[in-house]
Structures are given as structure tokens and as C-alpha cells.
Amino acid sequence: MALNTPQITPTKKITVRAIGEELPRGDYQRCPQCDMLFSLPEINSHQSAYCPRCQAKIRDGRDWSLTRLAAMAFTMLLLMPFAWGEPLLHIWLLGIRIDANVMQGIWQMTKQGDAITGSMVFFCVIGAPLILVTSIAYLWFGNRLGMNLRPVLLMLERLKEWVMLDIYLVGIGVASIKVQDYAHIQAGVGLFSFVALVILTTVTLSHLNVEELWERFYPQRPATRRDEKLRVCLGCHFTGYPDQRGRCPRCHIPLRLRRRHSLQKCWAALLASIVLLLPANLLPISIIYLNGGRQEDTILSGIMSLASSNIAVAGIVFIASILVPFTKVIVMFTLLLSIHFKCQQGLRTRILLLRMVTWIGRWSMLDLFVISLTMSLINRDQILAFTMGPAAFYFGAAVILTILAVEWLDSRLLWDAHESGNARFDD
């Protein structure tokens, strides 16, 4: 018995066209964080690309023209004298008006014999932002004059995390709450300039795509075929072959399989920071003279006294001054041990922890910024005066060393310790 099946006739004509040209192939790229070699397709503007294995951002879609970056830099340069030299806060102490600005706080630190601690604050609040705007201006002028731009481009990517104007702005709020127990506070004209400078700096850093600047100024022929001998440069993120001198053909720094002496430098910085954190938390970090009496505060006791007036601000200072430094030390110690013992479990967790400490590390400088600003506000000789204690130097040095330890660690070593050939990683 035959089955009668109805015929289905399409209502619209289906047209099949042959592909007349070869589909576009992607360029081969190595991930600078996990060293995976993959094919990167062509990316349009405002599109980002991520590593298929570790999800690290390979290409950032946010990109401004150099002219727009230069305009932002010149605007920031105009704001800087007002943000640093004009009063941020006014207080009335014992019937006398006192003005506080950024430069005055750094000068008070240096004047009291601790120039190293003052230079830490100076670099993060004044030096690094000033280098940022002058570097962008150098790129703008240098591109037109045919100057060598490689050193500036190499420095810009590392400079971003040292620009800490946003953290200093939080420190202004913390210092205001600490001082309000002794005097009446009012915002100064410099505060508005400083807030504007923070906003412009944040926007500029978020749109400063150094890798795209490398592509514009020093374009290189990408690798179009897969080759395990391809290496990625950690300076400019170019994937290719080393030249005859073993250097990256684009930025001219040595092109090595792994960062040289990464573990040794990381261990040295980490152990030194552990040693410095002990006096930083045991010795007094601030000293207040009130009517001839002397009151010393460690980091913890200062947080407890701050909690009596504002528990939320005390929580912020606790996280930045105690929780973050010790968390960074514990995480980095764990990561280094996992590399030495070739741990194969929990790779995803370790990668996330490394990215976390990379982002939060700079916030530990908050305590030094609060001390710097408070020193310029309260300084009335023996009637009422505020000065920093010996722990300030140890704390600042420990924070900087932990930042350097994270920067010096080559994250690809975590993958080397893991089993080879993993296309995915999980716990």
C-alpha cells in the first residue's frame, strides 16, 4: 500500500549564491595573561575582544583620537594649579581661619623630617597626573615632529594605576569627618577644581587605549598563520617573532617567553612588605597634641575612634588600611606557593584573586592621604596640633611594595603550573 505524501511548494523562490571570495581570516594573537594562541577576527570600533580561555580583555573598544586626548590633557593642565594650590577646605580653629590644600599637606610631611613619605604622596597625587598630561601632550606634538614615541607609550600603561586623584578625593571626605570634632569646616574653591580634575582624569584614563596608539604610530604586520613560536610582548602586546637582537619589532624591548626574574622580584617585594606591615600596624601612625597632652593612634585605634562619629567612614578606612593590605599579602603568598608547588586545582579562583588584588591594591594609600591633609588643617603649635607617627613611612612603603609585587608577577606562570593543553579552566 503506497502512502500519498503531499508536496510542499515554497511560496518564495530560494536563491543560492556561491561564495565568490575567501572568507576573511583572523590574525593570530597570544593572550598576555595566559599565553593562549588564538585567531582574533577583525574588530570594529566600539567592540571589545576577550581571550577565549581566561576571559582577559585583549582589545578595548573604547578609543579616543589623539586630538581629543590632547584637549583633555590641556584642560587638566589648566585645572591643576587651582586643584593643588587653592584651598580645598576652610576650618575655623580657636577663632582663626585655616586653609588646607594639597601642596601644603605634602610640605608639612616633608617639613617634619619625613621627606620619603611626603614624596610618596607627591608622586601619586601630583607627579603621576602631571606625567600623564605631559605624556599625552608629548605624543600629540611628537607625532607631528617625527619624534620617538616608544618610551612614552611604554610608560603610559604602567602609569595608570599610580594616578590616585580619586583616592585622594575620598581622603578629603575622611579628613573632614575627623577634623569636624575640633573645628567648623567649609569647602574651599580649590575643592571644585579638584573634583573637576578627578572627573576629567577618570574619563581620560578610561578612554586612553595605549594598544590602539601603538597600532597608529607603529603598525606591524600581524601573524596570519598559526605558529607556536609566536611570542607576545608584555610592553606593547604585539604578537610576532623577535628581531635579530631578540627584541620586539614594535617597542624594541627584549621579547622573552616569560617575564625575567618574575618570581624572585615578586618574592622579594612580598617578604619586604610583610616585614614592614608589622611596625606599620604596631607603631603610632598619627599623633595629636591637645592642650599640651599627647595622644597617639595606631591604624586600628584611629579607626575605632573614627567609628564613634561615623561608622560608615570608619568601615571604608578599615577596608583600605587593614583589610586590603593583608588580603593582598595572603593572596600573593598563596599564588606564589601554588606556582612553586605546581598546583593544578582552583586555577579559576587564583586568576580571579590576582585580578582582584590588581584592582584594589592602590586604595591602601588612602590613610597616607588623610594624614597629609589633616596635617595641613590642624597645626596650632602646642594648643592643638596633628602630626604623623613613625608607622606612616612603614605603611606607605608596604603598600608600594605590594603594588610592585602584583605588577611583577607574570600571570602566565600560573598556567605553566597548571596542566598543559587546557582550553578551559575551572575549579
Rank of each mutant, 00 (worst) to 15 (best):
L3H: 13
T5C: 07
I8S: 14
T9M: 12
K12A: 12
I14P: 12
T15K: 13
A18V: 15
I19A: 11
G20N: 09
E21Y: 10
C31N: 00
Q33A: 10
C34A: 00
S39C: 13
S39T: 12
P41N: 14
E42Y: 05
C51A: 00
R62W: 11
D63P: 14
S65R: 09
L66I: 14
A73I: 13
A73H: 13
T75N: 14
T75Q: 08
P81Q: 12
F82G: 06
A83K: 03
A83H: 03
E86G: 04
P87L: 05
H90K: 11
K111H: 15
T117V: 07
T117C: 05
F123A: 00
F123I: 01
G127V: 03
P129A: 09
I131N: 02
S135H: 02
I136M: 07
A137Y: 15
A137W: 14
Y138H: 06
L139E: 01
W140V: 15
F141W: 03
V152F: 02
L153Q: 07
M155D: 02
L159W: 01
L165A: 13
L165I: 11
L165T: 12
Y168P: 06
L169S: 02
I172D: 01
I172V: 10
A175F: 01
V179K: 02
Q180I: 14
A183Y: 06
H184P: 09
H184Q: 12
G188E: 06
G190R: 05
F192Q: 08
V195G: 13
L197I: 04
L197W: 08
L200S: 11
T202K: 15
V203P: 14
V203N: 08
V203Q: 03
T204H: 04
T204R: 01
L205E: 15
L205Y: 15
S206C: 15
S206Y: 15
E211G: 07
R221I: 10
A223N: 09
R225H: 06
R225S: 10
E228C: 06
E228Q: 08
E228K: 11
V232M: 14
V232S: 13
C233M: 00
C233T: 02
C233D: 01
L234K: 08
L234F: 09
H237L: 07
F238I: 04
R245M: 05
G246E: 03
R259G: 12
H261L: 03
H261Y: 04
L263K: 14
L271S: 08
V275H: 07
V275A: 12
L277N: 05
L277I: 10
I285H: 00
I287W: 03
I287S: 05
I288F: 04
Y289Q: 01
Y289M: 02
N291T: 12
G293V: 07
D297C: 04
T298G: 03
G302P: 00
I303L: 10
I311E: 11
A312V: 11
V313G: 02
G315W: 13
G315P: 08
G315V: 10
F318N: 14
F318W: 05
F318K: 04
I319H: 09
A320T: 11
A320V: 11
S321L: 00
V324C: 10
T327C: 13
V329A: 09
V329H: 09
V329S: 09
V329D: 13
I330L: 14
V331P: 06
V331G: 12
F333P: 01
L336F: 08
H340P: 13
K342Q: 09
C343H: 15
T349S: 14
T358N: 14
W359A: 11
D367M: 00
I371D: 00
M375Q: 14
S376K: 13
I383Y: 05
M388W: 01
A391I: 02
A398D: 05
I403P: 03
R412P: 01
R412N: 00
D416M: 04
H418C: 06
E419L: 10
A423L: 10
R424C: 08
F425T: 14
D426E: 08
